[in-house]
Every structure is written in C-alpha cells, then in structure tokens.
C-alpha cells in the first residue's frame, strides 16, 4: 500500500502510527513536496489482517519477539504457557521497575506478560532509561503501538 500526492506526483511518506485501543489503526502520511497530510484509517478486521502479516506499518522500532503474534492475539492462552530461560534474563539488564510499574505489569495476562516486559525493557534500554515507570510505559505504548499492553 502506497500513497501518491497527485498534485505533486510524489510518493507520500509515513509520519506517524497510532492504535487508539478500539481495534482500529490510524496512520498519517505526508507529501514531502507540498506537506499535505492524509490519514489511513482501518476498521478492526482490516487491522487484524495487517496484524496477521506480522508487519509493523512505519517499521519496527523494537526487535520482533518470539511467537509475537500468537502471544499478542490468542485470547485463550494459559497463564503459565511460557517460562523465561537464561537467554531472557539478560534482556532487562540495567533497567529497573518502579513498584507502580511492577503492579501494572502484574495486571497484564500471564500469557503475554513476558513479552510485554521484554518490549518495555528493550525500549527503556535503547533510550537510556534506568527506571521504568507507568509514564514510561504510557510513552512506549504510544510510540510502539502496543494496544492493550
């Protein structure tokens, strides 16, 4: 899917992606020539089809997690389906969690919690953030499009 600014005959460039939390997707594109902006809005099942491709519009900003789509979308997964191995414990090295952030993380369903923890930890580490707080989680969620996490 590409967008063309007909007046300028220029391919429009990705600018921003948002997941409002209602199953829809909003993506903004800008014409690099005239600056005109357009929005791509998908309904929930169109969003689901994009999700099934395992791609991220706007590109990936954190590495793909193992079984990312399964863990992020299966609604009937069991709480203790996954255990962290020794390769996982290093992911959060150098990053600590505030008590409020830990409490919030504990409310994430167990099936997906480990993946969510890794994503936030990698986000924080990449940006030199030492302590993950609910505010950091909110910012990361908005930037990374982590609906429901």
């Amino acid at each position: 899917m590409k967008f063309l600014c007909i007046e300028c005959d220029r391919q429009m460039a990705f600018e921003e992606r948002q997941l409002p939390g209602d199953g829809t997707l909003a993506v903004a594109f800008t014409c690099p020539s005239c600056g005109r902006k357009i929005g791509l809005l998908t309904n929930p099942f169109e969003t689901q089809l994009v999700s099934s491709l395992g791609v991220v519009i706007g590109g990936r900003t954190v590495p793909e997690q193992p079984l990312e789509m399964v863990r992020g979308t299966v609604a009937t997964g069991k709480e203790d389906a996954f255990a962290e191995g020794k390769g996982d414990t290093a992911t959060g090295r150098g990053v600590s969690w505030s008590p409020e952030a830990r409490e919030r993380l504990a409310r994430v369903p167990g099936f997906v919690r480990g993946m969510v923890k890794r994503i936030y930890a990698e986000y924080a580490r990449d940006r030199g953030i030492d302590v993950i707080t609910p505010g950091v989680m909110d910012t990361a969620r908005a930037e990374l499009g982590l609906e429901g996490m």
Partner: peptide
C-alpha cells in the same frame, strides 16, 4: 483457540491469523 479481535467478522481474518501462527 480464539483470537482477540472483532468476533462478528472473524471469518474474514481467522484463516490469516492461523497462517500467521503457523509461520511463527
């Protein structure tokens, strides 16, 4: 096996989600 998403339209996307699970 159930996926999060708009259940009343699941016939549209469920096959794609299962293929994605196999890919993973």
């Amino acid at each position: 096996l159930a996926f999060r998403g708009p259940q009343n339209e699941s016939f549209v996307w469920r096959g794609a989600m299962e293929a994605a699970a196999l890919r993973e």
